[in-house]
Design a protein around this nucleic acid. Structure first.
Lengths: 204, 204
DNA sequence: TGTAGTCTCAAACGATCGTTTGATTTCCTG
DNA sequence: CAGGAAATCAAACGATCGTTTGAGACTACA
């Protein structure tokens, strides 16, 4: 592992990768610290407990994702006129990007796992960290789709989120072909998601 | 627990519930057998191992789901003319129904979890058990959406699956209101999914 | 009723888990 | 350079895991 990074950072990086690969319960602190090249006790020393480490892994990436989404939305809103596709792109692209760069390419699998884990404390955690971002996007969607009732709009945004999560988790039947670069594949994924979601949101 | 059922059945029922609630690794055989009111050793006696039990839980429900989807599709195909919404309903409704009846109401959470677990053996297992059903539906979608390329179609079906899985897992922002019966809520979910998916699939 | 086969049971196995401890090393500061 | 805080280390803790064992209870057929 990158021995120039701090112990804390090496733990976070290894944790992200191993949680994505084996799940939160499946990845043990012994595997994790061995991969990071640090002592077993370092996790409890630096983070307090395994649960706190899980939270930290989440927080680090969600903060990134929120910032990028809001920045993208802000840029879109600065244009003279905004299309549904533009807002969707601001919602979707940062998420796909996050699953590629920053060395934390596996985070989205972690998130998809977390969605499935389905416990209420996580739900609250995500709501606290996602809430204001989702509200901003929801407001824009409502403005662009005035014919939709509030309930109808919530439903459709939820389904867009489902499609996005599924695509990001990489479990679907669509696999990146070996002759397509990661960047190109990501661009194709974004294009398909945006076109599909725009049509779904605009349904009569 | 239902003490009239056989030990095997009681284990399967408790396993399904506990796997959905705590995950495959989070649910221990001791919790599981205690909830079922059977001896700890009964799992290994009747199923061989915990992994085999997991497989059995899957197989039982997936067989049900496949049968219901194919039956629904067959009935739709018997009509004089079939609409995209009809085929989508045959795809979506059995999945939502399965998450409600048969005492295995939590199976879809198990499935959503399994999607996130993301390992290749499961992928192969699902492909073996789902493959022929998906091929039939894909064929019908291709017939109803002749303007789509094969790749485009695969992508969109994948996104429909994502939206469906997300809705079924019940994690989204949409929660059933206490004044709405489970049956009504399921019907609303199906209606939203079908309308959204039909529009998404039909996108230009 | 006797017996073979099926099932259930309490108990224990070794392995691995997250966490804690206390000594030791490393690092920074005065 | 001395000294105290911060970090790392090997080792052990109790708990829990999936699995196995061997004895006992039950069932069905002769």
């Amino acid at each position: 592992m990158n021995s120039s990074a701090s112990t804390k950072e090496r733990i976070l990086a290894s944790a992200e990768a191993l949680f994505a690969q084996r799940g939160f319960e499946g990845a043990s602190l012994r595997q994790l610290t061995a991969a990071a090249g640090v002592n077993l006790a370092a996790v409890n020393y630096h983070f307090g407990s395994k649960d706190k480490l899980v939270e930290e892994v989440f927080k680090r990436r969600l903060d990134q994702l929120n910032a990028r989404r809001l920045a993208a939305l802000k840029q879109v809103m600065g244009q003279s006129e905004t299309s549904l596709e533009d807002v969707l792109a601001a919602f979707i692209r940062p998420a796909l990007d996050l699953s590629h760069d920053g060395g934390g390419g596996l985070f989205m699998r972690v998130l998809a796992r977390a969605f499935a884990e389905h416990d209420d404390s996580l739900r609250r955690f995500l709501s606290d960290n996602y809430g204001h971002v989702m509200r901003q996007f929801t407001g824009e969607f409502a403005r662009l789709l005035p014919h939709l009732s509030k309930e109808e709009l919530y439903w459709r945004i939820d389904l867009v989120t489902g499609a996005l999560t599924h695509a990001m988790s990489g479990f679907g039947i669509i696999q990146r072909k070996s002759d397509v670069s990661e960047t190109v594949h990501r661009e194709q994924t974004a294009a398909h998601l945006i076109r599909f979601s725009a049509a779904g949101l605009s349904a009569p």
